[in-house]
Simulated assay, not measured.
Amino acid sequence: MERFIFFVLIFAVVVGLAAPNGHSSQAQLNQQILVDANASASAASGSADETAMSPAYGGETELQRGPGGHFYTAASINGQSLPFVVDTGATSVALTVDAARAAGIYIDPSSFTVVGTGASGATRGTRVTISHLEVAGRTVDNVDAVVLEGLEINLLGQSVLSRFGSIEMKGDRMMLR
């Protein structure tokens, strides 16, 4: 778990450095990621060779490389659409405090404990289970996740990605199958 937290912290620093400076707030960046992810999903679903995706029938979703060289997508937690960075190196899903609250996951930041150690020292947060998550046409129940203090964007990690048949990267595209 400590290794996971270390990778999350390093990734958060990289994302923070890659995020646009200027007058954009994190909320504005998250909203733009949601808009971009939803536009990509709408465009993909309109293509003639796109297969409808469900756990029973398979299919695929294509993601385009976004700001800072990362792959972004929207996922729905308990019916709430939220922006995510696809993080193949993360063990589990990591949520910001605000995202957890928006999705109806009760957390009390005053009860956060040290859940690992990263480059900046102790990382505080809490482990949670997401009852219902939808991403790329797939529904995943009972997802292990962590809510981290100071995290700026949600990370979609292996607790969800491992439930896909395959993940393939080619240039600026990532295919979820």
Rank of each mutant, 00 (worst) to 15 (best):
I5V: 13
L29T: 02
L156E: 12
R3W: 09
A102T: 04
M1L: 12
Y106F: 10
F71E: 02
L155F: 04
I77P: 00
A145R: 08
E50R: 07
D141S: 11
D172W: 05
G137Y: 01
A48M: 07
E60I: 00
S92Y: 04
P20D: 06
S42D: 12
A102I: 00
M53C: 13
Q26K: 14
S81P: 14
A122G: 05
Q80V: 05
V97K: 14
P83T: 02
S76Y: 02
A12H: 14
V13T: 06
S42E: 15
A74M: 05
G125P: 13
G116F: 07
M1N: 11
F84H: 08
P67L: 14
I105V: 15
S47P: 00
F6D: 08
V86D: 03
S120R: 14
A90L: 09
S81F: 01
R3Q: 13
D108R: 05
E50W: 05
S111D: 14
R127I: 06
R177T: 02
D98I: 04
A100I: 03
Y57E: 13
G171M: 06
G46W: 00
I130W: 02
A39C: 05
D144G: 06
L161S: 04
S45Y: 01
N154D: 04
A56S: 12
T123A: 15
A102D: 15
G16W: 03
H70G: 03
V143F: 02
F4K: 11
A27H: 13
V8R: 03
G16E: 11
Y72N: 05
M1K: 10
F11E: 12
Q64H: 11
G58K: 13
D36I: 02
R138H: 04
G66H: 04
F164V: 01
T126Y: 06
G157A: 04
G66K: 03
S111F: 00
H132C: 09
D144V: 05
M174K: 09
I153V: 08
A27S: 15
G58L: 04
V160G: 02
V86K: 10
H23L: 07
V14I: 13
F164T: 00
S24F: 14
A102S: 14
V14S: 09
P67H: 10
A12R: 15
V114I: 05
L34V: 07
T129L: 07
Q64L: 11
I153K: 07
Q31L: 15
G165D: 13
N21V: 01
I167E: 04
D144R: 12
G69Y: 07
S159P: 09
G118L: 12
L17G: 10
S24E: 13
S159A: 06
T126N: 11
A44G: 07
D87M: 00
I105M: 12
E168M: 11
N38F: 09
V8M: 12
G137W: 01
G69D: 09
E149L: 08
L17H: 10
S40K: 14
V140W: 06
V114C: 12
H23Q: 12
E62T: 06
E2D: 15
T51E: 15
A48I: 03
L148R: 03
D141V: 02
G104V: 00
G137T: 00
L156Q: 09
A94E: 09
T117S: 12
L34P: 02
Q28V: 01
N21F: 05
A74L: 02
D36G: 01
M175H: 08
Q31P: 02
A18W: 04
V14F: 07
M175L: 13
G157K: 01
G68A: 03
V160I: 11
G69P: 03
H23P: 01
E60H: 15
A56D: 15
